[in-house]
Write a protein that binds this DNA or RNA. Sequence first.
DNA 1: GCACACCCACTGAACACTTAGTAAGTGGTC
DNA 2: GACCACTTACTAAGTGTTCAGTGGGTGTGC
Lengths: 175, 175
Amino acid sequence: MDAFAARGYNNASLAEIADRVGLTQAGVLHYFRSKSLLLTSVLELRDETDIEQLGTERPHGLEFLRHLVDTARRNAEREGIVRLYAVLSAESVTDDHPAQVYFRDRYAGLRAFVTDAVTEACGLDASDIRARTAANAVIAVMDGLQVQWLLEPGAVDMTASTGLVIDSILAGLRR
Amino acid sequence: MDAFAARGYNNASLAEIADRVGLTQAGVLHYFRSKSLLLTSVLELRDETDIEQLGTERPHGLEFLRHLVDTARRNAEREGIVRLYAVLSAESVTDDHPAQVYFRDRYAGLRAFVTDAVTEACGLDASDIRARTAANAVIAVMDGLQVQWLLEPGAVDMTASTGLVIDSILAGLRR
DNA sequence: GCACACCCACTGAACACTTAGTAAGTGGTC
DNA sequence: GACCACTTACTAAGTGTTCAGTGGGTGTGC
């Protein structure tokens, strides 16, 4: 995780990773057949532990959207994970990137989740595309803030900006 | 530009770039002393041509924010440039990336510009930090949408989502 | 005796960058 | 207009390094 976050997938080397876990390069490849399999395994593990932490109770509607602001707040304390996702999600749009499928699926799921929450929170019709437009914007703002924050932490308040966008959009859609 | 956009800085090779311009690898290094200098030159050239196109008249306040929505619309027709910035801005947060300074400066300038525009458009006090919070969010939403759009163009309407965020935030701040 | 968990030593490819050279042109001098 | 010194625009052939991945081991525990 740290290696991929600090250097991206392409520029991280198995030798460096092996070193940090006290193995040789060949030792790492004993467990993961290839570098790209290691990357997808790291991403899957990250998802699993996140889901475990979340528990079985998943908030809905407005509560879910408030939860996103909390996530932004918590993210400001977890630079490693933020960096991992910020770097890899953008790198994944390059040709033949091994995490491309992962991120496409991840965003599809996220969009569906947030769209539902917006629809519910604003009492919109399920066919109202404004919910999807809003959901995409909410996801985008969180991602975009991370890049700015990683480059210059003092210049960005992820919690405030995320909260402002969510509040403003909800207020607008409710009218 | 195409090479760095399609493969990122680290994974693009001078040999490939040389091939596409009909030179040898050494021929490219005759003009640009190093790969990282080539990257920064590409980014600077991009800025220069953008500034030339913009002309001398720069919109202010509300007009500038409307202009951002137009930019989002135009970007949907310029995948190459969108990819270049989306990939490189995120890659730049990795250790010792040659474009790190470029993007830090770029975001600092952008934040100042958009903050001024929001302040003016909403008639806020110059010291009101909500303008900066809003500006960061507007920039972030545009960046974040690009990554989603590059991964799955059909799933994202950059114009609509950008417009929604700007309109909602302005409406909220004006009250 | 067998399976697992590794390491050592290697391979071949790719990479950025260097060096030495060539061919074409440019400007000045006799 | 012939010669010369110098520059520019490259190329060919390297250099040393780094990389992911392989194959053949060896030790350890069951």
